[in-house]
Amino acid sequence: NITNLCPFDEVFNATRFASVYAWNRKRISNCVADYSVLYNLAPFFTFKCYGVSPTKLNDLCFTNVYADSFVIRGDEVRQIAPGQTGNIADYNYKLPDDFTGCVIAWNSNKLDSKVSGNYNYLYRLFRKSNLKPFERDISTEIYQAGNKPCNGVAGFNCYFPLRSYSFRPTYGVGHQPYRVVVLSFELLHAPATVCGPKKST
């Protein structure tokens, strides 16, 4: 009989979030998941669920729940959905087409922007091929755009693959930082360890 609440607040209220290319994953298990708490945590810009209804979450049980978190800019949030393409979905964080879970995003301009520009958040701009779903690539190998090998040196047709967002508070919403948490629900042929409040007794 599990009584402890799932530590969603640790994920959502973390002081620092990860850069999207090096997104963070927390496995959540053996706890009571009260998803209604999430609705009250922040004024969400996005709370979209796929393959599951957000209002039914509190009635369900899962084997595992994974919470992935990272920062992107406002106009990239739409890429965090099944079947999307674009720089983020292709080279940084890719959801599977049959994704079961929820994408939660909110504006973090007050936390993640600086007047002089916050350069701490990076994204991958160049990659030889698209990522597979939930693949994480943290390599910093020089990207070869031409025929000549780069031998690890940046220059003509040889690019450092990561680029930094420079978040400034005066930017338009599309270029402001957004914190994203992706909850993916895993149903294996194994005992369910993460249940809503109704199912945990």
Rank of each mutant, 00 (worst) to 15 (best):
S69G: 01
Y91N: 08
N64R: 10
E135M: 05
P177D: 05
F47N: 02
Y21F: 09
T3V: 07
L188T: 15
P191A: 11
V37N: 10
L122I: 10
Y39F: 15
V65D: 01
V71A: 02
Y178D: 05
P169W: 03
I88E: 03
K56A: 11
Y39N: 14
R179W: 01
A81N: 03
I88V: 09
P133V: 03
L162E: 05
S184L: 07
S108N: 05
D98E: 09
N1Y: 06
N58C: 07
L95Q: 00
L41E: 08
S108Y: 03
V71R: 01
D75N: 11
S166A: 14
P54L: 14
P149M: 09
L95I: 11
R16E: 15
N1P: 10
L125V: 15
L122K: 15
C31E: 05
V32C: 12
F160G: 08
D34E: 05
K198L: 13
W106I: 04
E10W: 04
T100K: 11
F134I: 03
P133N: 03
P169H: 10
D9Q: 12
G155Q: 09
I72V: 13
N30K: 07
S36F: 04
N120H: 12
N120D: 12
I104R: 00
H189Q: 14
C49D: 00
N4G: 11
Y66M: 09
S166D: 12
A33C: 09
N58P: 15
Y123K: 09
F62Q: 07
V103K: 00
L41K: 13
C150Y: 04
G174W: 09
V20H: 03
A89K: 02
S166K: 14
I104T: 01
G174T: 12
P149C: 08
A22R: 09
K148N: 12
N120P: 14
L122Y: 15
Y91S: 05
K56F: 06
P197F: 15
S139K: 08
I88F: 03
K148H: 12
C6H: 03
R27V: 14
V103N: 00
F99M: 00
Y143T: 07
T201L: 13
I142Y: 09
E141I: 07
V173A: 13
R78T: 13
Y121G: 03
S69L: 02
A22H: 09
N24S: 14
N40S: 12
A33V: 15
Y121N: 05
S164D: 08
G174K: 13
K132F: 07
V194T: 10
V77T: 05
V37L: 12
A89L: 01
F185R: 00
P54N: 09
H189G: 15
G83D: 06
P43G: 09
A192D: 13
Y21E: 05
A145H: 11
L5R: 13
F17W: 13
I2V: 13
V52F: 12
K148I: 12
T193A: 12
S36G: 09
S164T: 13
V173I: 13
S166M: 11
S19Q: 04
L125I: 15
F8Y: 06
P161F: 01
T3C: 03
S139E: 07
S116C: 07
C158N: 04
R73M: 09
A18K: 06
Y91D: 03
D59T: 12
R163G: 09
W23K: 02
K132C: 05
K26L: 08
P54G: 09
G51P: 00
P54V: 12
G196D: 11
N64Q: 12
L111N: 11
P177V: 03
S139W: 01
L188Y: 11
A89H: 02
I72L: 09
V32H: 09
F12D: 02
N24R: 15
N87T: 15
V65G: 11
G117C: 06
V32P: 04
L38I: 14
F160L: 11
I2C: 09
S53E: 14
H189F: 07
Y21G: 03
